[in-house]
């Protein structure tokens, strides 16, 4: 069944994330990071940073940091077991650090299909802000297999 395109324009409820050095330390360990500005507060301070630096793809993790990160797909009737990540991109405006609190405002900006509906695509665009200032644009395309 094709996803109803009436969901284009649907707003994803805002959530906020308080970024911690603890979380970044685990992300660094998972990704094999060796530069200590990504996991060690002392090293980050010595490098002149206000805190441990969030790496480039961590905005996606924070966007997912909510009880039901794919609730928008469930609202559309999608089976999350048939979901694949199709595309992901970021436009960076300001770096963010442990200690920052960020807000995430998302919107469904497109829904389309290929191969006669065998693959459906749901596009979400999110504005990430720190104290009202735009720090990153997050663009995600999820694929739902038939």
């Amino acid at each position: 069944m094709l996803i109803d395109k009436k969901h284009i324009g649907m707003k994803v409820p805002q959530h906020s994330v308080h970024l911690t050095a603890w979380q970044l330390k685990w992300f660094a360990k998972a990704t094999g990071e060796t530069n200590p500005i990504y996991f060690d507060e002392e090293a980050a301070k010595k490098a002149g940073l206000p805190g441990v630096l969030a790496p480039p793809t961590f905005f996606f993790c924070m966007d997912m940091d909510k009880e039901h990160p794919f609730d928008y797909l469930e609202t559309m009737g999608c089976d999350l077991g048939k979901m694949l990540h199709g595309e992901q991109s970021f436009v960076y405006h300001k770096p963010v650090y442990a200690g920052d609190t960020l807000t995430f405002d998302g919107e469904i900006t497109d829904i389309y299909d290929k191969k006669n509906g065998a693959l459906q695509f749901v596009v979400k665009d999110v504005k990430v802000r720190r104290q009202g200032e735009l720090v990153c644009d997050v663009h995600s395309v999820m694929v739902i297999r038939a």
């Binding site: 530069n35 630096l53 790496p55 480039p56 793809t57 694949l84 990540h85 199709g86 595309e87 992901q88 991109s89 970021f90 436009v91 960076y92 770096p95 663009h139």
Partner: peptide, 17 residues
């Protein structure tokens, strides 16, 4: 990327899986 340039230099970054 961040081993090559400081992260602040990255303007955009996108991937297709």
């Amino acid at each position: 990327l961040t081993q090559w340039v400081p992260q602040e230099a990255i303007r955009s970054f996108g991937v297709r899986f």
